[in-house]
Nucleic acid binder design. Structure first.
Length: 265
DNA sequence: TTCCAGGCGTATC
DNA sequence: GATACGCATGGA
């Protein structure tokens, strides 16, 4: 990874990045594709237009300070994904998955943003999740804080058209706003403990908790298993997922998830 | 019309 | 602890 400043833009050079594989595969739900290899979206309330391919990207109208404070972390630019893929390639299935999508990265999102987004993901599809989150941010004019959201009711959240998940979003907001679930503390807890803590929220089960831990708290041992990953595990890992990858199995899961979905879906 | 979508809570055994 | 079922909404 290296970058340079070009007027109001940042030019980013990173070989292990493909925007479609990172921003449009259900890791984060706040990005809209605005053209070929071009996206507009937010991390909380920081907007970004990013475009590029082939290892060269333009982050438009972004200061170096914002790049280093927000986007460097968000795109996990401090991690060597080539090294990770070499490690994963010791496994036959993972080698294929890594070869299939070389531009995968873990998006390191804000914990609250990830929690709320994945609460809405339950028994839902990516298009609708994005719609719900977009209406939420549109309604407030920014991404709501837990305090703001906790003032709502199931009825007032009807405008989101989020169905039965509205009460889950409210419970998440109330527990976080009241401090009953402290996301900063949860992020510091060991994986298992943190997962149990998140599952105290109504609407947060094992899968959503793992997504929040992985995407929102960078617990790379969190391993979300949905219907797609269930198929991968049953078919390719009948004896269990290799223990040697445990510390970063969540990132391995990103490659496998993307592989099975594009291949089968 | 019916089925399904990056699940979860509840009831029941 | 395992398994069955309902759940809001909307696209295919």
């Amino acid at each position: 990874m290296r970058y340079e400043i070009s007027g109001k833009d940042i030019i980013l050079y990173e070989d292990d990045l493909v925007l479609d594989e990172v921003l449009d595969t259900g890791q984060a739900f706040r990005w809209d594709k605005t053209g070929e290899n071009s996206y507009f979206g937010h991390s909380l309330d920081t907007p970004l237009k990013i475009s590029g391919s082939g290892g060269k990207f333009i982050l438009e109208n972004t200061s170096e300070e914002t790049f280093l404070n927000v986007w460097y972390n968000y795109f996990d630019l401090g991690t060597d994904y080539s090294a990770l893929r070499r490690e994963y390639s010791k496994d036959v299935t993972l080698r294929e998955a890594c070869r299939f999508s070389r531009g995968i990265r873990l998006l390191r999102q804000d914990p609250w943003e990830a929690l709320l987004s994945f609460v809405f993901s339950s028994n839902n599809n990516i298009t609708r999740i994005k719609g719900i989150v977009a209406r939420l941010a549109e309604h407030y004019g920014h991404f709501p804080t837990p305090q703001e959201l906790s003032q709502e009711t199931v009825e007032s959240l009807g405008l989101l058209r989020s169905g039965f998940r509205a009460k889950y979003a409210l419970d998440a907001a109330q527990k976080v706003a009241s401090g009953e679930v402290n996301l900063e503390n949860v992020a510091k807890m060991p994986y298992i403990e943190a997962k149990n803590e998140l599952m105290r929220i109504c609407g947060v089960g094992p899968k959503v908790a793992d997504c929040v831990l992985l995407g929102g708290m960078y617990k790379t041992e969190a391993f979300p298993v949905d219907v797609w990953m269930r198929r991968v595990l049953d078919e390719y890992y009948p004896d269990g997922f290799p223990e040697e990858f445990y510390p970063t199995r969540g990132i391995a899961q990103l490659y496998l998830f993307n592989y099975i979905r594009k291949f089968r879906g």
